[in-house]
Design a protein around this nucleic acid. Structure first.
Length: 228
DNA sequence: GCCAACGTTGGC
DNA sequence: GCCAACGTTGGC
């Protein structure tokens, strides 16, 4: 169950599937029910602009599942090879249903780079580099009852979820496994190294996360090193 | 398949 | 506004 892929990107414009129909509305409604943006800040926060501080994030890590998994009757598989196969090697990163992850996507700017991370699979880790080619806009899948991430609580007059478009840039020279990143993280926690506070380890479950330039560059440097 | 971590829901 | 119950994420 658990969809984890909140992140998957579907075809940029074409959508693929459409099967599984069924339910949704109520089914899902049963468990998710109301939203109301409840008080927390998430929804509106994003204050964004204006707030002077907040060093802007410039690099990202985006998780998606490269192996088939059926969620609400729909296969949510979307690995880097799937992105590569789309027209223009470009797709929309739809399905994100977490406020923090969504807010990070809203901060993304065209031209920024992100690591494409494979999650919930045999070998989790970083597979390649993608770049943002379109800034945040409404994720249409939230209104699609047939979609794995349909959100009956979101209304077209006031959409809750956003997505960005990303384009494949290149595969990393070698796959950088989670296990290796974790070893560096542990080591760096002790010596103040680059990955000492990487979000992948300090913010469990966050599917779209920011990386500092230092983190991004350190990970890139691993491409030319031997696996730990 | 298990289950730890943690976000969300909704009663009170 | 608190917080227990519940659901999801995602490594292992």
């Amino acid at each position: 169950m658990a969809p984890k892929k909140r992140s998957r990107a579907a075809a940029a414009v074409s959508n693929k599937q459409s099967k599984a129909s069924s339910d949704a509305e109520d089914g899902d409604g049963g468990r998710k029910r109301k939203r109301v943006a409840s008080g927390r800040k998430s929804e509106s926060q994003h204050s964004s602009s204006s707030a002077p501080e907040k060093a802007a994030h410039t690099h990202w890590l985006m998780k998606s599942e490269p192996e088939s998994r059926i969620e609400r009757g729909v296969d949510v598989k979307f690995g880097i090879e799937d992105l590569k196969a789309l027209p223009n090697q470009t797709g929309c990163w739809d399905g994100v249903r977490n406020y923090q992850a969504r807010n990070f996507m809203r901060d993304m700017k065209v031209g920024q780079q992100a690591f494409f991370y494979h999650s919930n699979c045999k070998e989790p880790g970083i597979a390649g580099i993608i770049k943002i080619v379109k800034e945040a806009y409404v994720d249409h899948t939230q209104f699609d009852k047939k979609d794995a991430h349909y959100d009956p609580s979101s209304k077209p007059e006031n959409p809750k979820w956003s997505m960005v478009d990303v384009q494949f840039e290149r595969m990393t020279k070698r796959f950088i496994p989670l296990t290796e990143l974790k070893k560096y993280h542990l080591k760096h926690k002790g010596n103040g190294g680059a990955l000492s506070s990487m979000a992948l380890f300090t913010r469990a479950r966050l599917s779209v996360q920011p990386l500092t330039a230092e983190e991004f560059d350190f990970i890139l440097s691993l491409e030319d090193t031997d696996p730990l």
